[in-house]
Amino acid sequence: MKISNVILMACAMACTTAQAATVSGGSLILNIDRNALAAGVTLDNTAAPSIYVEEFFDATAANRTQTQLLNDNTPLDWSDYAANEISATGLQYAVNGLTIAVNPGGRQNRPTTLDFDPNDLFGTATGSIGLGGVIRFRVDVDRPNNRILMGDMTLEYHPELEGASPGRSGWLLVNHIGFDADAFELFDVATNLVGNSLTLTGNLGYGWGIDHLGATDARLSDTRIGNFSFQTTVVPVPAAVWLFAGGLVGLCRLGRPKERSRL
């Protein structure tokens, strides 16, 4: 194969690679409707809500173990449900970077591995967006099994799920702490990619990870239990690839025969 053909193929590969992008920074904000959440969970033994948010740990708690998250801020009076419940709105998760620190015991916080072509997000998206933060729910069963954690999540796009029922988007929030399971399905999602800004907004539904609490019927009915907003910055592939592409362009120029000087 001629050297010129090799150079042209390499240049074409560099141009193709240069279309790849990932995301950096930003946050996901969950607003859970506490009444709708509780209404869909049938595991309800007392006058207390069947499920509610007892605590939220943001990304700054990444160094805490799973056991600490389950036991930190233990209420003095377990029966005082009103005092133990916190607001389920404005729960903010940070977008993880491409690398993360070593997880402490029981944690499964994950890096961001999303890769896509900005010109075809839905047709090319692979990987996932790591999110820092953990919700602790109280459920209406006897101690010590009345707390569950949902966190160390990833935001993922699964095209095979899109349109399976009205409003279903293919976007999922997947729990990784304690067990791997869909925490929330995302419905009615509006995606906006303008310049280097990517935003998603829409509604929350139950994921199958809450089925063991009796939410199966509500999940299969696509019950909405809140809303979310997500914002991040789109960035190109690592600079090394761009430098590689630039070097190939230079190589292409060097590979061209020099014009003879005119007299």
Rank of each mutant, 00 (worst) to 15 (best):
F122A: 13
A83E: 09
L98V: 07
A101W: 00
R143H: 12
L243E: 01
F116T: 04
Q108E: 05
Y157V: 10
P49V: 04
V194A: 12
P144F: 00
S79Y: 08
D120A: 13
S4N: 08
G214R: 08
L172A: 07
L198K: 09
A38Q: 05
V235G: 01
A39V: 14
A164W: 05
C15K: 15
F179L: 13
N192P: 01
A125R: 07
G170P: 08
E162A: 11
G40H: 11
N145Y: 00
G105E: 07
G170E: 06
N71E: 12
G178N: 02
E55W: 02
D211A: 08
G105K: 05
A38M: 04
A48M: 06
L155W: 06
T191C: 09
G178L: 02
A62E: 09
L254C: 04
D188E: 13
E156W: 01
G247Y: 08
L8S: 15
G25I: 03
G170F: 05
Q66M: 13
S4T: 11
I51A: 04
S229L: 05
D117K: 03
V95H: 02
D182M: 13
D188K: 04
G214A: 11
S229H: 03
S4Y: 06
F187S: 03
Q19F: 14
G90F: 05
P238E: 02
Q92I: 11
G178I: 03
V174H: 06
V194L: 07
C15R: 14
F116I: 03
L30E: 02
N227M: 02
W78Q: 09
A59Y: 02
G133T: 04
F57Y: 14
R168V: 05
H158Y: 15
F244D: 09
L98Q: 05
L200P: 05
N71F: 10
C11R: 15
A10M: 14
A47F: 10
A164V: 11
A18G: 08
T16E: 10
Y206R: 15
A245M: 12
D77C: 10
T42D: 08
R34S: 15
T46E: 00
R224F: 11
F179R: 15
I135R: 06
I86P: 14
N71H: 11
L91K: 01
G97F: 00
E85Y: 06
A94Y: 00
A12Y: 09
E162F: 08
E160K: 10
P159R: 00
I86K: 06
S79N: 09
T89P: 02
A215I: 02
Y52A: 03
R136F: 09
D33S: 14
G226A: 08
E55Q: 10
V189K: 01
K2I: 13
N103P: 04
D188T: 02
R107L: 05
Q68C: 04
L172S: 10
C11L: 15
A36F: 14
S165P: 01
A101M: 01
P159W: 00
T216H: 06
I51G: 07
L91Q: 03
T60W: 01
R253P: 13
G226C: 08
T17V: 14
C15A: 12
G130Q: 02
